Simulated scan of single mutants.
Amino acid sequence: MYYVKSRSYLEGTMRLNKMTGRVIATMGIAAMMMTQTAGVMAAEQTESKQLKVVYYNQADYPGKKIGGSTIQAAGCGPTAVAVCYSSLTGKKADVPKMCKQAYKHGWYYTGQGCSHSVVPGLSKLYGMQCKGLGMDKDAVEKALRAGHPVVALMGPGDFTKNGHFVVLTRMVGKDKVKIADVGSRARTAETWSLKKVIRQGKEGANAGGPFWEISVKEEKQEEPDYKQKMLDGHKNIDAVTNAIDKIAD
């Protein structure tokens, strides 16, 4: 035996189907918008800073003195600090002046070169913050990913036979690093293994070395209001839901 469904029953079924469709559509849109909001939040939290490097080379000052020697032969320390200063502030550094200041403050000894204190000393003199990192590879990587240059005092190896200051400027991938070698444009153009660079750091360095993180005091930036972003997302979802209701009605 067959039964003919009543008109009211069919209309009720149609309304139920419309309501189900609206719920499914709203849930889909909500999930999509929540995913997009979460993606924006994650990107903002993990974004690393990129340092715009200003490069100086010791050989660019022929005949200029540091104590009883020349900048080209013995001015790597002040020149490395100059790289950090200009890269962080965007201001031009006077390298010969910085070398004279290093000598004046007792951070350079004729015939021996710059003391390790030249890095924190000149940094403070030029309004920068200097943090000794020792041989801590993780701390060096963290500093670079924060956009802070790291002055390195290198021992015998790829960069020097005795001792030489360079500047680590940024990470490339997981374990590669770019270096501003103030004594060599050729080595500056290369990409180096961070592990290898750390291993070649000068043993027995003092004043917090052989690696120093250099930074400037940054203006405190207002933290993104993630709660407000979520509320705005909910408002958008409600607006979409209301639009769907009007179409379905």
Rank of each mutant, 00 (worst) to 15 (best):
G173L: 09
K196S: 11
M135D: 09
V150R: 04
M14R: 13
L16M: 13
A25S: 14
V53L: 06
I237Q: 11
C114P: 08
V167L: 06
K49P: 10
Y226F: 09
Q228M: 14
G21W: 08
K52N: 11
W107C: 12
T191C: 05
A248W: 04
V240S: 11
A73Q: 05
R199V: 04
V151F: 01
A180M: 07
T37M: 10
K5E: 15
C84K: 08
L194A: 06
S215H: 03
P224S: 09
M1G: 10
V53P: 06
A25P: 07
Q228H: 09
K64Q: 11
H234S: 05
A59P: 00
K92V: 10
K64G: 02
K5C: 14
T37S: 10
I179K: 04
G75D: 08
Y3V: 13
T70C: 01
G68R: 00
V53K: 07
Q58S: 10
T26I: 07
Y226I: 08
G157K: 07
T169Y: 00
V167I: 08
E190V: 02
I198Q: 03
I24E: 15
G28Q: 06
E219D: 11
N17Q: 13
K195P: 01
A42Q: 13
G204F: 03
K137A: 04
H105W: 00
F165Y: 15
V151R: 02
R170P: 06
E213I: 00
L16D: 15
G157P: 15
C76G: 08
Q129G: 14
I214P: 04
Q58F: 00
A186V: 15
D238V: 03
K64S: 07
D181T: 03
I179P: 02
V118S: 13
V151I: 10
W212T: 02
G113F: 01
F165S: 13
M41Y: 08
F159C: 11
D94Q: 12
V119L: 10
G39F: 01
W107Q: 12
A205R: 03
Q50A: 13
H234M: 08
M14L: 13
G113Y: 02
G127L: 05
S6P: 09
